[in-house]
């Protein structure tokens, strides 16, 4: 079994893909934390804890939920808004939750506005600009999520969570799989349950922020 762990960076300019370092994806009903497979229940707790600890906990919804291309996508969007509102209600003064979209994957030239969006080709700009120290990707196509997660791990110290609708992401520090409306709501419940029990970080992480 690999000793490699997927930890907040900055790892280095071109971090190795976690898969190449021996990190495996979870089976249904499981998740991974730092590359270690755990029961899904434990991952809800950990993700909620990370949100409540972060100075700028952020959700990054991608095109699969931003665009109402089917009924399920619209329902997931509603659940994401609920999760965001829950985090907002549960954090303490000084913590500033954000909801920043990734509307599509085109490289944005000549510039991106990091205050209003994130782009998979240079996600670090949005992380740096907003001093984000914990984020969750949801509704992003897997290949673009992998790209973003690796860049973020390479150049920032942001804690990354993936709520993946497929098999999960090795390159996230915490990854769920088979994302559904129920799972998003369950995460919101976990945040609510842990409200007031987690001490927020006073200052944001050194490089992600």
């Amino acid at each position: 079994m690999t000793q490699y762990r997927v930890l907040p960076g900055p790892e280095h300019f071109l971090p190795p893909s976690a898969a190449s370092m021996g990190i495996c994806l979870p089976d249904p009903g499981e998740a991974h934390i730092n590359g270690v497979i755990v029961p899904e229940e434990k991952a809800y707790e950990e993700a909620a804890k990370q949100f409540l600890m972060a100075k700028v906990p952020t959700l990054f919804p991608g095109p699969l939920v931003l665009w109402a291309w089917n009924e399920k996508a619209a329902k997931k969007a509603t659940a994401i808004r609920h999760l965001y509102n829950t985090i907002k209600e549960c954090v303490q003064p000084g913590q500033t939750p954000m909801l920043i979209p990734m509307p599509d994957y085109r490289p944005k030239y000549p510039k991106i506005n990091p205050e209003v969006e994130i782009n998979p080709n240079h996600p670090n700009l949005t992380i740096w600009h907003n001093k984000i120290d914990c984020c969750m990707f949801i509704g992003v196509h897997c290949h673009q999520a992998n790209l973003s997660l690796k860049i973020i791990r390479g150049g920032t110290s942001c804690y990354t969570i993936a709520m993946c609708a497929q098999a999960g992401h090795e390159d996230a520090m915490l990854s769920f799989r088979d994302a559904s409306v129920e799972k998003i709501m369950k995460l919101a419940d976990a945040v609510k349950r842990l409200k007031g029990t987690v001490k927020p970080r006073l200052t944001s992480a050194k490089n992600g922020a």
Binding site: L66, A68, A73, A74, R81, L99, P101
Partner: peptide
Amino acid sequence: ISEDLYDIMP
């Protein structure tokens, strides 16, 4: 655009 996320779209 999904109604619940309309306001955050650029």
